[in-house]
Computed example of a mutant assay.
Amino acid sequence: GECHMGPDHPQIEEYIESKHGNIFKAKGKNWDMGYSTTNHEQIPIEVPVCTTCHMDGNKTQPMTHNVSARLATESQAPWSFRTVWDQEHLGDWKKKRERMEEICASCHAPDFYKMYFLNADLVNLQYDEIRRAFVHWTTKLTKNGTIKRLKYDGKYWSSPVLNGWDELPEHNMYYAWHHEGRRFRMGAEMMAADFTQWHGIWEVQEDLTELIKWAAEHGDAEAKKIVNTNDPRKFITFALYDVPGTEWGIAAKTNTTPFVYQAFPDYWDRIYKNVETVYKRGLISEDQWQLWLKRYKNKEHYLGLKYANSPQVDSTWNFYKKRNDIDFKAMKEQVIDLVLPGKNFYNNK
């Protein structure tokens, strides 16, 4: 596309990373892309391309040139929110999501795409909570004069909650929205795990950590307290959303080790209240709330906790642990313990 690439909205890169994009790169050159959906009940190619999901029709959905018709969330904006764009003609966000799900149903079962959308929607809501932390700091630091707003001819040219660029907190806040924050959200919507994780949430949280360190260096008492503690909870200065398990399966050992599960005995109670709140606010649908509740009420199963000490689970875990131990031993013997005879060129040691 003309705009959907690059660090701030990398849809084409995310598509290529996704399973859909993998298959398209491998086989797409052999497909007839000149088809018309008016001549097919089912999509006549093996995986969707951009137009398939956003413009093409199927046996239940007509073709459209209005790409807003199937988008339920404004995930490019400074805050993620349910779209109201042209809703007088297109309907509310639930109607738009319904259209998209009917396209997904051309290839996928409801159990898969409904859970996938629930996870993506909670990622968008999670972004909002992290952004709320950014707004807290930049508003506070601007109000007390630590951050100086750009000003010319009696007019301000920067916003404490949007941009500024000449001081690190403003720079970090902008990138956490416009670049990393978009990648975090859009990656979750497009099955691009690296963009969600390493190009997204990792960099967003790094921006927030650097902002707090900057505030501490400039005398903020609250920031100093966070920076100076060795308590790992300092990296979670915002509310969380979560779903018991994943849409990919049950991983018992994976869900017995995360720090947050161990550090907060009331972890899932907190998550419940957060998800219930956004449900009551209309930010997730009744169907999504019931889907989340099903997971919550059966979390021992979906998290795999009830299987954590079973022979089958432990045997698989132990098999790969032994493999990793062999790898580490080889790494240690080959390079970690390697001592070269030549001295270094700085201090001859």
Rank of each mutant, 00 (worst) to 15 (best):
A330M: 07
P341W: 06
N58S: 01
W289I: 02
N347F: 08
Y267A: 03
P341C: 06
L303T: 11
H199L: 13
N66V: 06
T196L: 14
M55R: 15
K59P: 01
R131E: 11
K343C: 02
K148M: 07
G34F: 10
A176R: 05
D220S: 06
K225C: 00
D314T: 12
I250W: 04
F259K: 01
A263M: 01
T209P: 00
T138F: 02
D287T: 15
L211I: 13
F134C: 09
R281V: 03
R132Y: 14
L150K: 08
W198S: 13
V84D: 15
K224W: 04
P44V: 07
T83R: 11
I12M: 07
Q288Y: 05
A251C: 07
C53M: 13
G181L: 04
S36D: 15
K253G: 04
D56Y: 06
L125T: 05
T277C: 03
S310H: 13
P78R: 03
T64W: 05
G181H: 05
K148H: 14
G6A: 07
W214S: 07
N66S: 01
N144Q: 12
A192H: 02
L340Y: 11
H89R: 15
V313G: 02
L150I: 10
F328M: 09
I250A: 00
M173A: 09
S68K: 08
S159K: 03
L162I: 10
V84G: 09
V123M: 08
A216D: 09
N309H: 12
E167N: 03
K299E: 02
N344H: 06
S158W: 02
W198G: 00
V47A: 00
G245K: 01
V47I: 07
D314K: 15
E74Q: 07
R97I: 01
E41V: 10
V243N: 14
K253Y: 01
G28D: 05
W202A: 10
I284S: 04
R97D: 05
G6K: 05
W198L: 09
Y113V: 02
S68Y: 12
Y296M: 05
G34K: 10
H178S: 14
Y15S: 06
G154E: 02
W165V: 13
D128M: 00
E17S: 04
E286N: 13
C50N: 07
G219M: 08
W289N: 06
G181N: 08
T254I: 09
T277G: 00
A192N: 03
N39A: 11
F184M: 12
K297A: 00
I271G: 04
V243S: 06
K306C: 04
T196I: 01
N318M: 08
E41N: 12
E217P: 00
V339C: 00
E217M: 05
F184H: 14
I201L: 11
Y241E: 05
P311K: 11
K273T: 13
M100L: 15
K59H: 10
Q87Y: 10
N144K: 15
W292C: 04
Q87K: 12
P110N: 02
W202L: 07
L305E: 07
A109W: 00
P244N: 06
A193H: 06
H199W: 14
